[in-house]
């Protein structure tokens, strides 16, 4: 009898183990995501409807849509949005074109293949802080190597931080430098998936290599190109560390005239310099919606292109 009970208990425990333990094993992930990922994002929406001062913690007042109304009339917000879009275009377009070209170069039979690929990827593993600091020195007005090199082609020293266009160019260059190699590897992977018989046929028809690149490679890469464009857009909309560190004072205004302040940096300024948590949350949530819209466009575009190819 005792043995029977013992066995029954063991069987019960074992059933509990097989039924219950899977949930136990995935629980840490969902708990942590809930607490530190999902909750803050939803709570941002709540904070954004309040007048919420960081310094006076605990005191907040429901103000409804007032923060959003203020934001839409805030010239600094629109300035930041314009800067964000400008830096995004200036960094993404050359970056993806260069990546396409580098991928094409890598898509040959090469010696030291792995070393070349790693060399191309190196910028992507160095930290944003390190990269931005080094480039800020290189873009220095008086002793930077960029101005020194430009001097040879007769371009006078540029104060890169001072102007809107020059600061956008410099920041875009830094962003593009860090991401070009990564995108090149993604294009390379897709290029390797293109069936070789297409090129063989083109060879027989006497098409040049340039024609083959334009007529075969690029069209076959279209889904990947759209994918990388949208991913770069999503990343580009959140740029904040590069413009913060590009100003040597590291004040989050993005230059003396806010000439290179991005939306994310504006959010940081309002939250952690002006201590206006409610207003900063409204900015964050707006940016979040913009990103969501881009994500949906991404989904629709890629699906449509996949359909076209069927």
């Amino acid at each position: 009898m005792a043995t029977y009970l013992h066995q029954a208990r063991r069987a019960g425990l074992s059933r509990l183990d097989t039924k219950g333990s899977p949930y136990l094993y995935i629980l840490p992930f969902f708990l942590l995501f809930g607490a530190f990922g999902l909750f803050p994002l939803l709570y941002t929406a709540y904070v954004s409807f309040n007048d919420w001062d960081l310094l006076d913690s605990g005191s907040h007042r429901w103000v409804g849509l007032a923060n959003y109304r203020e934001m839409l009339q805030d010239a600094y917000f629109w300035n930041a949005l314009g800067n964000t879009l400008s830096i995004w275009v200036l960094s993404t377009v050359p970056q993806l074109l260069a990546a396409l070209w580098i991928a094409h170069l890598l898509n040959h039979r090469l010696r030291a293949r792995t070393a070349l690929r790693m060399g191309v990827l190196l910028p992507n593993v160095t930290s944003i802080v390190a990269v931005t600091i080094v480039f800020t020195q290189l873009f220095g007005r008086d002793f930077g190597m960029v101005n020194w090199a430009l001097g040879f082609v007769g371009i006078g020293p540029i104060d890169w931080q001072a102007n809107t266009w020059s600061s956008h160019l410099a920041i875009s260059f830094i962003v593009a430098w860090r991401w070009t190699g990564y995108n090149a590897l993604i294009y390379l992977a897709s290029m390797q998936a293109i069936p070789h018989h297409l090129y063989e046929a083109a060879d027989l028809d006497g098409a040049s290599q340039g024609q083959q690149f334009r007529r075969i490679t690029v069209p076959m890469l279209r889904p990947t190109i759209i994918f990388t464009t949208v991913i770069s857009t999503i990343g580009g909309l959140q740029i904040m560390a590069e413009p913060l560190l590009f100003a040597s004072s590291q004040t989050p205004t993005g230059g003396s005239d806010r000439q290179f302040q991005t939306v994310a940096l504006f959010m940081y300024e309002q939250g952690f310099r002006e201590f206006r948590f409610g207003y900063a949350s409204a900015v964050a949530w707006t940016l979040c919606l913009v990103i969501a819209i881009f994500a949906i466009i991404n989904f629709l575009l890629t699906r449509r292109i996949a359909k076209d190819e069927d």
């Binding site: 990922g37 709570y43 941002t44 904070v47 999503i234 948590f277 949350s281 964050a284 994500a295």
Partner: peptide, 17 residues
């Protein structure tokens, strides 16, 4: 799907937390 959530934009409530 959670990897799609832009965590960076939740820093204000995360800071309050």
């Amino acid at each position: 799907a959670t990897s799609m959530v832009p965590h960076q934009l939740g820093i204000i409530p995360l800071y309050i937390l």
